[in-house]
């Protein structure tokens, strides 16, 4: 029996009610938002429910929306049911001033490095993570480079002279 997106949506609403919202299917992949306190409960439910069995974490990352005041940072989970070959995605939003999200490392070992990477680039504080420190960038870095307020370019570069590009 292949599980359908509408079935997953039904099960989630039945279990969490108001806690999940904004369901959509961009490119056929079920996507929804959840309250940030519920992220572990939803992961656990999707993992344990015998008809769903989303037991593989494909990806964990974040997005910065600087214009959404109060819900600037979105943490995105991608899950995969390997038996039925069905994928889903859900997001939890958090205020940039209190970027605290419960860690998924107790449920998925794969979340360990992905949460470190997300912390490295977006500064999400994963509460309960065993080793939350930078994984890709240099340890001395004192900001979170993929937040939109920081310029992409390296600010120490001195040879980018407008005269070199005929704009002097």
């Amino acid at each position: 029996m292949a599980i359908t997106n509408s079935y997953i949506q039904e099960k989630l609403i039945e279990k969490f009610g108001e806690g999940v919202a904004n369901f959509g299917e961009p490119y056929g992949m079920l996507t929804f938002e959840a309250q940030k306190d519920l992220n572990l409960k939803i992961l656990q439910f999707l993992y344990n429910e015998p008809t769903l069995q989303f037991q593989f974490m494909t990806d964990l990352t974040a997005v910065h929306y600087p214009n959404q005041v109060g819900r600037e940072l979105a943490v995105v989970y991608h899950l995969h049911n390997l038996v039925e070959n069905v994928r889903i995605r859900f997001k939890v939003f958090t205020d940039i001033n209190t970027p605290d999200i419960f860690t998924a490392t107790k449920l998925f070992e794969a979340a360990n490095w992905m949460e470190r990477e997300t912390y490295d680039f977006f500064g999400i504080n994963f509460v309960g993570h065993p080793n939350l420190k930078r994984v890709l960038n240099v340890d001395e870095m004192d900001y979170f480079p993929l937040r939109k307020e920081f310029p992409l370019e390296d600010q120490t570069r001195i040879d980018k002279d407008d005269e070199m590009f005929g704009r002097g």
């Binding site: 960038n137 870095m141 480079p145 920081f150 992409l152 370019e153 390296d154 570069r157 980018k160």
Partner: peptide, 17 residues
């Protein structure tokens, strides 16, 4: 020599640094 096209936060802008 200079960081080249990688004018970004993660790349050393020339090994002469």
């Amino acid at each position: 020599s200079s960081g080249g096209i990688f004018d970004t936060y993660s790349v050393l802008q020339g090994i002469d640094q």
